[in-house]
Computed example of a mutant assay.
Amino acid sequence: MARISQHALKQAAQAGIISEQQADSLHLFLQQQDSHTPRFNFTHLLYYFGGLIAIGAMTLFMNLAWEGFGGWGIVSISLGYAVLALILCQRFKNQGLVIPAGICATFVICLTPLAIYGLQQAMGWWPSSSQYQDYHRYIQWQWIYMEVATLVVGLILSWHYRYPFMILPIAVTLWYMSMDIAAMLTGHRPDYLFRALVSLYFGLAMILIAFWVDIRSRHCGDYAFWLYLFGVLTFWCGLTMQDSNSELAKLGYFVTNLVMMLCGVILARKVFVVFAAFGSFAYLYHLADSVFQDSWLFPISLTIIGLAIVYLGILWQKHQLSLSSKLRAYLPLALQELLASKAH
């Protein structure tokens, strides 16, 4: 959705399209809408930076000192944090502060693995000598219980509060679970290539789920954003890490990135375009460095292709509305509504 600046509204008022009072009211309304939608501004930067530090403190940055509290101590501290976060979440929700409320609810979901780990330690159910800090580092089957509990808590809280940011820890947990299930089924820690393959198929599944969520939530919040982000990240990394000496396979990699770029444009999802651009340039660099390293025609050919793509963009801009409407007429109604909502 395009953003309208205050300057543009003033220009519209000066042109007599709207009154100055309408311009001021519309600007105030748009500011209130922006406060509910993630934007790259200083306020939202503080929200997410502070929230991620708090979440990281109880997940990625957890150290061995916490083992000294014992199982029940870890459970008690986790529950105390969770209660405090839920109180803050409800308070922020009542004040209309959607993003801080969502961050607090997400914090509770991220606390769940620690609480379950403490419970297993307290009850004597922990099956190995691993510590909680290994949860985000190593692939092991015993993390399954922590992951299942996280998914349950995440789904319950997401159903109750319905904040898009809460989808992120659910997506990460599903990725962890896919790796751990692979380790459980194979009976050993998967090697590098197998993990890349698991990430590839998991990412593809996540992208399809994100597309389904995108269609279902097309009339409300952007609940698919984090699913797309994590799905594309895991799919692209898994695809890029595949080992192949075949030029045909490398060409397939390039074509896949082009398809991703096209999907990103159609769905108005920049994450597809960003990763696809990296992959495309990596393939072109491979051609220049290995396949056509002694060819003076290759850079010239790329220049011509690049200019041709620019000209194609000019033609598309001129006929975008007519071509888009004709193409969308062949799509299902739900997909037409989704694309129409992205076009405004």
Results as ranks from 00 to 15, higher is better:
Asp34Ser: 04
Ser35Val: 02
His36Ser: 10
His36Phe: 10
Pro38His: 00
Phe40Glu: 08
Asn41Ser: 07
Thr43Ile: 10
Tyr48Trp: 15
Gly50Gln: 04
Leu52His: 05
Ile53Cys: 03
Ala54Tyr: 01
Ile55Tyr: 05
Ala57Gly: 07
Thr59Pro: 04
Leu60Tyr: 09
Phe61His: 13
Leu64Pro: 05
Ala65Met: 09
Glu67Tyr: 15
Gly68Glu: 15
Phe69Ala: 13
Gly70Asp: 12
Ser78Ala: 15
Gly80Cys: 02
Tyr81Ser: 15
Tyr81Phe: 12
Ala85Leu: 09
Leu88Pro: 00
Leu88Ala: 06
Leu88Phe: 12
Gln95Glu: 12
Gly96Met: 00
Ile99Gly: 04
Ala101Ser: 10
Ala105Val: 12
Thr106Ser: 13
Thr106Met: 14
Cys110Phe: 05
Thr112Cys: 14
Thr112Lys: 12
Leu114Ala: 14
Ala115Glu: 01
Ile116Val: 15
Tyr117Ala: 01
Gln120Leu: 04
Gln121Trp: 07
Met123Arg: 11
Ser128Met: 06
Ser128Asp: 09
Tyr132Pro: 06
Asp134Cys: 03
His136Phe: 12
Trp141Met: 02
Tyr145Gln: 11
Tyr145Phe: 12
Val148Lys: 02
Thr150Lys: 09
Val152Lys: 04
Gly154Tyr: 12
Leu155Pro: 06
Ile156Gln: 07
Leu157His: 13
Ser158Cys: 06
Trp159Gln: 10
His160Asn: 04
Tyr161His: 11
Pro164Ser: 05
Leu168Arg: 12
Pro169His: 11
Ile170His: 03
Val172Ser: 09
Val172Phe: 14
Val172Trp: 05
Trp175His: 13
